[in-house]
Design a protein around this nucleic acid. Structure first.
Lengths: 163, 163
DNA sequence: TATTGTTATACTCTATAACTATA
DNA sequence: TATAGTTATAGAGTATAACAATA
């Protein structure tokens, strides 16, 4: 390990542990999603976001942020989801330029189909070694981080501006 | 969100937050690694593992676990790293079948080159919204999870046995 | 026979740049 | 002019299966 960290030992430990833990979980989850529901990780994230949205809808740019770097990446994945009948795409009436992506009933069913096995992996790899109290603590810490990450500069927009 | 979780609300929250947070961090980090050091995320993980190993070496299979699903994936990435002069590969003397991958001086330099910017992203996205105490708590929780994940069934071996 | 690693192949995913259309 | 999204293209990464070599 390089020895010029602007992080102290504890911070470095958190970072390295997180890299390792999330990498293993992600690999396992990617495989499960493909096998159980023929979904890529990105496709699952899109469906999950739409599914947990009250309206079941999101604009494309909004959907891209935090999931893919480029808009074209989202266009590709959304195209696959649409072809599979899991989402619909329709132009917004407020702004004719923007596309509203909406999860379909089949999309929700697919989500439900993969969810149990998905959860099982997360439970066995992440949650099992933690006590109930630890899980609650973990939740308390992660909440603010998620908020912070959401308000961080949007990547799909930024990369466009860079031109 | 599907409503048959074997997870309660808190557990589900941890899971969803983790997905979102790690996804954003990973995207940012992947870009930084590519721009600052022309490294893929997997290549960086390989270098980092080798760099933090006392010997600077690892066997291929050992290296594959937790980073890639297939051995061929590692062969590909290790080949790129070798071509770039960042690692060497030599057959083990204990077991002529196995390959020992070792980080080179150039590999360590590359690691040092990307590390500051890398850390900066992790700090700004993950660590900043947490207090010093929170970071320590986080470290305490993550440690056991990492241990657990390490002892989980190895993926590169398992996928082979499935044949 | 089992295991280690490589190779050939085919496929998925991704991003960049150029483009269209709307604001 | 700026923004939303798409498309074409080209490259990078991945896994599966078949393979060679060693244990």
């Amino acid at each position: 390990m390089p020895e010029q960290p602007h992080l102290d030992a504890v911070e470095l430990g958190v970072y390295l542990d997180l890299i390792e833990v999330t990498s293993v979980i992600r690999l396992a989850v990617e495989h499960q999603l493909r096998e159980a529901g023929d979904l890529s990780y990105v496709q699952f994230q899109i469906l999950a976001r739409l599914g947990s949205s009250p309206s079941g809808s999101h604009g494309m740019t909004e959907l891209a942020d935090g999931v893919v770097y480029s808009r074209s990446g989202l266009t590709y994945q959304a195209g696959l989801l649409q072809k599979a009948g899991l989402v619909t795409r329709a132009p917004s009436r407020d702004d004719e330029r923007s596309m509203i992506v909406t999860i379909t009933e089949a999309g929700r069913e697919r989500l439900e189909k993969v969810f149990p096995g998905h959860i099982e992996i997360v439970r066995s790899l992440l949650l099992d070694p933690l006590s109930r109290e630890d899980v609650e603590t973990f939740a308390r810490l992660l909440g603010p981080v998620r908020e912070h990450v959401r308000t961080a500069p949007a990547r799909s927009a930024r990369s466009r501006r860079r031109k």
